[in-house]
Write a protein that binds this DNA or RNA. Structure first.
Ligand SMILES: NC(=O)c1ccc[n+]([C@@H]2O[C@H](COP(=O)([O-])OP(=O)(O)OC[C@H]3O[C@@H](n4cnc5c(N)ncnc54)[C@H](O)[C@@H]3O)[C@@H](O)[C@H]2O)c1
Ligand SMILES: NC(=O)c1ccc[n+]([C@@H]2O[C@H](COP(=O)([O-])OP(=O)(O)OC[C@H]3O[C@@H](n4cnc5c(N)ncnc54)[C@H](O)[C@@H]3O)[C@@H](O)[C@H]2O)c1
Lengths: 206, 206
DNA sequence: CTTTAATTGATATTTTATTATCTATTTACA
DNA sequence: TGTAAATAGATAATAAAATATCAATTAAAG
């Protein structure tokens, strides 16, 4: 099953390996080595090997890893086989862009419903997803056993939405707002903080 | 000036401190301690102190850091005073969402022009930004001395766009596609890889 | 005026992540 | 059949990041 004690940096590299495996498969390759993968992704082979080891893949000396097996192992580890259902809150520009993104369904995430407070949006469909009023979230999440929530509301509402998600039993929050969220220990928050990324970029080019 | 040898993790925390400082300022506080900041962001005080030290801030024992001075230091370090001009390529769902985001201008980034290959988009304005044909990018970038590029095209075009950006003299690329880009050493790429984030989230909630 | 508590800043330690080294295995080929 | 080359896997070393310790400083309380 999914190895809970893989490091975050290693976990973040797995989708890159997966893409690489798919590409090599399409090129007709049956086996691939860490060196192959590493040279494509500009990673040292030893790092690729350690990550694949942690993911549970095994290879053969002189040959490398079997493409089909590697695909299966990574798919399993990444949860691409059975997508996780998620709610998204805030159907503005970013919320709509994420909802439109069909690729997520092949990468373990299925956005099943959206929530907003704007009467202009409630009841409408965006890319096939219905927008519900915010006050329906807790009840629906519990009935549908939703464990993942995405926050794309204005910053000032973010903590309120997080509180509602926690109340609803959600255990993983994908936070696109620039605010730090306070949640209980058993809830995992991943901050997609664009401002953090910008500060690195700006620093590096100046 | 901007400390080029700050670590990436530390740099990424600076915008959080900045937000915190602004919030405390609005509460009327004149001085703030690492402990204050840390408790708001769930960081240990020593980490906040080390980061602020690297950013060039100095505080006074028993009192903490002066709010106004901290704001100035962070603003300078983050480049919030003089926004960096950037081009964005790919005016689809995500490209439009980013272009619509006014907050960037206060956080060091000014998107000055957009590029696309679709005849339906070229010549139009989105949120006040004109869309140009892709073949105008190199010339315009050189004339306007553009150093930052944002890629929000489909994955299959990403490397081509990166090559064009490199040719145009762009030194920092914000890559929203899931592909690894090959660029020369003097070009910095920051990958906003949503699939990587998903793999951590899915792993942690299962 | 003295003591106390809080805080910074510098240094040291620990932990985590990355990279290197070494050994055993396997394939390809002479 | 034997040998060389490439590679996985295990272990060790290094580097980077986070955390702890301690001394110096300073404001406030007694
Ligand atoms: N657009 C971007 O590219 C971008 C970039 C970086 C960060 N962000 C962050 O993402 C968030 C959303 O950005 P956006 O550009 O989509 O904003 P937006 O204003 O376009 O959309 C916000 C949406 O949230 C809804 N909303 C407001 N309050 C709500 C509440 N309490 N509950 C539920 N819904 C509520 C609004 O009705 C609206 O539909 C913001 O926090 C922003 O800082 C966006
Ligand atoms: N939408 C999301 O929320 C989301 C999430 C994760 C990743 N991404 C990634 O971001 C990228 C863009 O996603 P999107 O949803 O906005 O896609 P989209 O299809 O909505 O938009 C792509 C845009 O790029 C333009 N384009 C195509 N080829 C081009 C080229 N060679 N040069 C210039 N422009 C070109 C298209 O005309 C279109 O306007 C994709 O790589 C996607 O994987 C998007």
């Amino acid at each position: 099953m999914s190895n809970q004690n893989m490091s975050v940096p290693a976990l973040r590299r797995l989708p890159l390996y997966y893409r690489c495996v798919i590409a090599l498969k399409e090129e007709g390759k049956k086996f691939i080595s860490c060196t192959d993968i590493g040279s494509r992704l500009e990673l040292v082979p030893i790092q690729v090997r350690k990550d694949l080891q942690a993911a549970g893949a095994t290879g053969r000396p002189k040959v490398g890893y079997e493409v089909d097996e590697l695909e299966t192992v990574l798919k399993e580890m990444l949860g691409y086989g059975k997508p996780t259902d998620a709610f998204i809150v805030g159907m503005g520009n970013l919320g709509q862009a994420l909802t439109a993104h069909k690729e997520f369904e092949r990468c373990g995430l299925e956005i099943v419903a959206a929530f907003d407070t704007s009467p202009l949006k409630i009841g409408r469909d965006y890319f096939g997803k219905r927008v519900f009023p915010l006050n329906k979230l807790v009840n629906l999440a519990q009935r549908m056993n939703i464990k993942m929530g995405i926050i794309t509301t204005p910053a000032k509402s973010a903590q309120d939405i997080a509180d509602i998600m926690v109340e609803a039993g959600i255990k993983g929050i994908w936070n696109f707002t620039p605010v730090h969220l306070n949640v209980p220990d058993d809830v995992y928050v991943h901050n997609e903080n664009f401002m953090s990324s910008l500060s690195v970029l700006i620093n590096r080019i100046s």
